[in-house]
Design a protein around this nucleic acid. Sequence first.
DNA 1: CAAATAGTTTAGCCTTGGCTAACAATTATT
DNA 2: AATAATTGTTAGCCAAGGCTAAACTATTTG
Lengths: 158, 158
Amino acid sequence: MSDHEQQPLPPTSRLSGDALPPVEQHAQQYETVRNAHETELIEDYVELIGDLLRHRGEARAADIASRMAVSQATVSKMIRRLNELGLVTSRPYRSLFLTEEGHKMAETSRARHDIVLHFLRALGVRDTTARIDAEGMEHHVSDETLAIMQRFTEKHQP
Amino acid sequence: MSDHEQQPLPPTSRLSGDALPPVEQHAQQYETVRNAHETELIEDYVELIGDLLRHRGEARAADIASRMAVSQATVSKMIRRLNELGLVTSRPYRSLFLTEEGHKMAETSRARHDIVLHFLRALGVRDTTARIDAEGMEHHVSDETLAIMQRFTEKHQP
DNA sequence: CAAATAGTTTAGCCTTGGCTAACAATTATT
DNA sequence: AATAATTGTTAGCCAAGGCTAAACTATTTG
Ligand SMILES: [Mn+2]
Ligand SMILES: [Mn+2]
Ligand SMILES: [Mn+2]
Ligand SMILES: [Mn+2]
């Protein structure tokens, strides 16, 4: 080590933040996030299709494209995937429908989404912001946290 | 419309959940999430490098690989990207270091991460769960919500 | 009913973020 | 010093999720 190069500082040079978690636990944090990201988009599609069916009576690819701010080609490709996964049934130029499994996923997702949204509002977050945050947060909230959020909302917003 | 096929239900058949937001607002929700996902991994790398530097004095690719539960090849590739983005400096078989910009990003990310983590703990979430949830949520929490979380934590955990 | 408009699909391209396998360089052990 | 073990890089593969452009189908309208 003869060169006068940039050297790591001693570990005591700063004392903010928590300690590093043990490697296995730390690894699990990131793994869980990666897993969530694998299903996230699927869930959002299925949830949106469910919402469109409920509120509009039908779910067309074009609506999904504009509501997601994505090209119709992107939606078309995704619908094929949802089909292969057995979550939707689709026939060209007809409304999409959810399979039994798709319907279950839509309900679960919507329930979770609502809990997070209502929680944020109960916390005091403005509606528009709450909606944006909830859209991303919903996929990363454990059942444990979800339950706590629900209780909080009930207590603070009768 | 001559065939007796599956028909959309009338929009009034169920009345749960909120109404659909206007298209532009709805679109913005998804766009914000997509944007967050673009920077998410970069932030996690930079934050982890910062944490390793602070707590261990050095940040080696191998540590990142095991803490993220990802192959070394993946880390190696990512480090090249971080380099190109001007966030880290690296020389083979030496510790990584953060550039000025990288350091700033690491601090910002850690601060945000800590706020979310402490908030979840203050809410009553168990530590392990809170850590997992925070890892994913942190990237989807607006400044507005962040501020509210911080105030909440201060009030409920002196 | 013909033409215009709107909706849908397909093909082909790109980036990101994973992986494995093979190789290279450094560091540790005997 | 030689060998072993660890660490890092590179090449090449893959899937997901975007995009545009072009073609096709359905619906609406003049
Ligand atoms: Mn979502
Ligand atoms: Mn996410
Ligand atoms: Mn983080
Ligand atoms: Mn994170």
